[in-house]
């Protein structure tokens, strides 16, 4: 029997801006139109906390497209929040314009603080209680990431099984860090709303293949949660790594221009060259970055200019 769905456009909060404009954080709630009793399962797809990370824009579009194609398969609530930092997205700004603040360092916010803290507080109010929140990031403008989910070790018991449905290549369970307690994911996870953090692609770009991969994963996850009854998409089994020393970080030993040599998401042997830092003024090779052991290169530098210490890659030890 065909089932209708409805789309409810709304906002998480609205704040007046000084000159003839209101800032609204928009939500689209998709749900079946029927009289079924009982509490429906709810998933929230969140992106755009960092205004320069746009990979999630395509994911939101693609999930909605698939739901609209098969509305009869929707049995729960899908909330889509494509722009948690709308002014940042509009102005190609990572943080919150006008405040120069990283929005993902002010959660859970406060109802009594600055405007930014008020917005963070309203976002937490809005998302709390969902069966799952998926917060999609795109690294930054400097690095390209293979689709992966990052999980704080404190919440790994609940989140790793959920992450394995998401069709990502890699699940990185990392050590707890106090400073990360100010993130959206930590605030929600620590108060009982399971939240997965996805990192995929690179800032200021859309990588269509990664977007489609994540959309497949979201549909599968919704299917697992009882929100979607469509056919399962083929899903990859991620590498799950929870070792304290499982990842090698490559930081630039010199300032210069980074020229990559290795291909992203390939297995490198000990001694293989990841890339070189060169000086275009003199023609010198300032540094050659090689792998200390065998592993898979899951992060690679995208933006060529590096300072001493700039991250140029990460290797998952194998």
């Amino acid at each position: 029997m065909a089932r209708e769905i409805k789309s409810e456009l709304g906002s998480v909060c609205e704040v007046k801006l000084p000159i003839g404009e209101t800032l609204a954080i928009k939500r689209n709630r998709i749900l079946p139109v029927d009289t079924a009793q009982g509490k429906r399962k709810r998933i929230g797809i969140v992106t755009g906390i960092h205004g320069d990370e746009l990979e999630g824009q395509y994911v939101c579009y693609e999930v909605l497209r698939r739901i609209r194609e098969q509305p009869e398969c929707l049995t729960g609530i899908v909330d889509v929040y494509p722009a948690m930092n709308p002014m940042g997205i509009d102005s190609m700004t990572r943080g919150i314009p006008g405040f120069d603040l990283d929005m993902n360092r002010i959660f859970p916010g406060s109802g009594d603080g600055a405007m930014t803290e008020y917005v963070a507080h309203k976002i937490i109010e809005e998302l709390s209680g969902a069966d799952l929140i998926v917060d999609i990031h795109a690294s930054n403008i400097y690095l390209t990431e293979i689709p992966q989910i990052r999980i704080n070790e404190l919440h790994s018991d609940v989140l790793v099984p959920l992450a394995c449905h998401m069709n990502v290549d890699f699940v990185w369970v990392h050590a707890s860090s106090t400073v990360l307690e100010s993130t959206l994911a930590y605030s929600l996870n620590s108060t009982g709303t399971p939240t997965l953090v996805v990192e995929a692609g690179v800032g200021m770009r859309i990588t269509k293949a990664y977007g489609a991969q994540l959309a497949d994963g979201l549909m599968n996850t919704m299917r697992t949660l009882g929100i979607w009854q469509g056919a399962a998409y083929p899903a990859r089994e991620p590498i799950v790594d929870a070792r304290a020393d499982g990842v090698v970080f490559f930081n630039a030993p010199k300032a210069g221009i980074f020229v990559p040599e290795a291909k992203h998401w390939t297995t490198l042997e000990r001694g293989d060259v990841v890339g070189r830092i060169v000086n275009p003024l003199t023609g010198d090779v300032l540094a050659e970055i090689t792998t200390p052991e065998r592993g898979i290169l899951f992060t690679i530098r995208e933006y060529p200019v590096v300072d001493e210490g700039s991250l140029v890659g990460r290797l998952l030890k194998r």
Partner: peptide, 21 residues
């Protein structure tokens, strides 16, 4: 270059990223 805040990097890490260093 990367818009990070040095006053959010203490105690720092001498093998880490630029502002950590």
């Amino acid at each position: 270059t990367d818009n990070t805040d040095i006053n959010r990097m203490f105690p720092g890490y001498d093998m880490g990223e630029t502002t950590q260093r």
